Computed example of a mutant assay.
Amino acid sequence: MILEVAILNIKKGQSSAFEINFLKAESIISSMKGYISHQLKKSVKEEDKYILVVNWETLEDHEIGFRKSEEYQKWKALLHHFYEPFPTVEHYK
Score class of each variant (00 low, 15 high):
I36H: 11
I36P: 03
I36M: 07
S37M: 04
S37I: 03
S37K: 11
S37W: 02
H38V: 01
H38I: 06
H38D: 08
Q39G: 13
Q39F: 09
Q39I: 12
L40H: 02
L40F: 01
L40S: 03
L40R: 09
L40D: 01
L40M: 04
L40E: 08
K41N: 12
K41A: 11
K41C: 11
K42Q: 14
K42A: 13
S43T: 10
S43I: 08
V44M: 13
V44H: 11
K45Y: 14
K45L: 13
E46S: 13
E46Y: 10
E46G: 07
E46I: 15
D48K: 02
D48Q: 04
K49S: 14
Y50D: 05
Y50I: 04
Y50T: 01
Y50P: 07
I51E: 01
I51A: 12
I51H: 01
L52K: 03
V53W: 02
V53M: 11
V54K: 00
V54Q: 02
V54T: 15
V54S: 04
N55V: 11
W56V: 05
W56N: 01
W56L: 03
E57Y: 05
E57W: 00
E57M: 07
E57T: 13
T58S: 10
T58P: 00
T58L: 03
T58E: 01
L59V: 09
L59D: 05
L59M: 11
L59C: 00
E60P: 00
E60V: 06
E60C: 04
D61S: 09
D61H: 12
D61W: 04
D61Q: 03
D61R: 00
H62E: 03
H62F: 09
E63C: 09
I64A: 10
I64W: 00
I64R: 05
G65R: 10
F66I: 05
F66P: 06
F66T: 04
R67L: 02
R67E: 00
K68F: 07
K68I: 06
K68Q: 13
K68M: 12
S69M: 04
S69E: 07
S69G: 00
S69P: 00
E70F: 08
E70L: 10
E70G: 10
E70I: 09
E71G: 08
Q73D: 11
Q73M: 15
Q73T: 12
K74T: 14
W75I: 09
W75N: 03
W75E: 06
K76I: 07
K76R: 14
K76Q: 10
K76T: 08
K76W: 06
A77Y: 08
A77T: 13
A77N: 14
A77V: 13
L78K: 10
L78G: 10
L78I: 11
L79M: 05
L79A: 07
L79D: 02
L79W: 00
H80R: 06
H80S: 06
H80E: 15
H80K: 14
H81Y: 08
H81D: 14
